[in-house]
Design a protein around this nucleic acid. Structure first.
Length: 225
DNA sequence: GACCAGGCACATC
DNA sequence: GATGTGCATGGT
């Protein structure tokens, strides 16, 4: 599995180049984006974040002082705006009331305890927590998202029923705990998912297309781990 | 007009 | 623990 994943990374980074990724200017913006992008196309999230910037409220204390309704009205383009306003507020309230609004304080702990802390906030699940840890805190944890799952499923690596933790463990077991590697690898999955692995997979043009169905029975629990 | 997009919590069985 | 459902906009 290790070799296969490294081969994937090699092929993807050769095709797409180094991504060095998450489209945000600050760690706080990453956290906001991580919540807003839940089950939502990034283009819509970008509009919502732009609204927050235009209103000059992309700041923990500013959002803390806003009503949930006011916040919701600014993030309408991201969809699910009522639930997301509540989730965003939950995160901000935790940040302000437990860490004086400072991400450096929130992030000043080991990956596992930081993850537990984030998961304890209502509205932050595994992917959202891991995105914040990797892309905002800069700590090594592999983010499993719809693109990752789709590509691995289509290539027969994992069953449709594989859980988040099982997929994440594949990467953690196979790769060194390297923030830059995890960052770029996940970004490559997003890129290939975006370009070639949508509703109708264009496997012929995909840099991984030639590998599809041609790999040895690598799968969860396979021998190559 | 149907289907989909970088989830998550909650209800129900 | 597995499965179903609500949440909502904007692009294809």
């Amino acid at each position: 599995m290790r070799n296969v994943l490294l081969l994937y990374y090699h092929l993807l980074s050769k095709r797409f180049g180094h991504r060095g990724w998450w489209p945000a200017e600050t760690p706080f913006e990453v956290c906001v984006g991580a919540i807003l992008t839940q089950n939502t196309a990034w283009k819509n999230v970008a509009r919502a974040i732009e609204n927050l910037k235009t209103a000059s409220v992309l700041d923990p204390f500013k959002i803390y002082d806003m009503s949930e309704e006011e916040l919701a009205s600014l993030i309408i383009p991201a969809g699910y705006y009522n639930v997301k306003a509540r989730r965003l507020r939950n995160f901000i309230v935790h940040l302000v009331e437990n860490h004086a609004g400072r991400l450096s304080s929130l992030f000043n702990s080991e990956v596992s305890s930081l993850r537990s802390e984030l998961l304890s906030i209502n509205g932050i699940g595994k992917e959202t927590a891991d995105s914040m840890i990797l892309y905002a805190a800069g700590k090594p944890i592999f983010v499993v998202d719809a693109y990752t799952r789709r590509v691995l499923t289509r290539h027969g690596f994992i069953s449709e029923k594989a859980t988040y933790d099982e997929i994440q463990d594949l990467f953690h077991a196979a790769l060194p705990a390297d923030t830059a590697l995890f960052n770029d690898f996940h970004a490559q999955f997003v890129a290939v998912g975006h370009h070639f692995c949508k509703r109708i997979p264009q496997c012929d043009a995909c840099p991984l297309g030639g590998l599809k169905n041609s790999l040895p029975g690598a799968s969860l629990g396979g021998a190559d781990r």
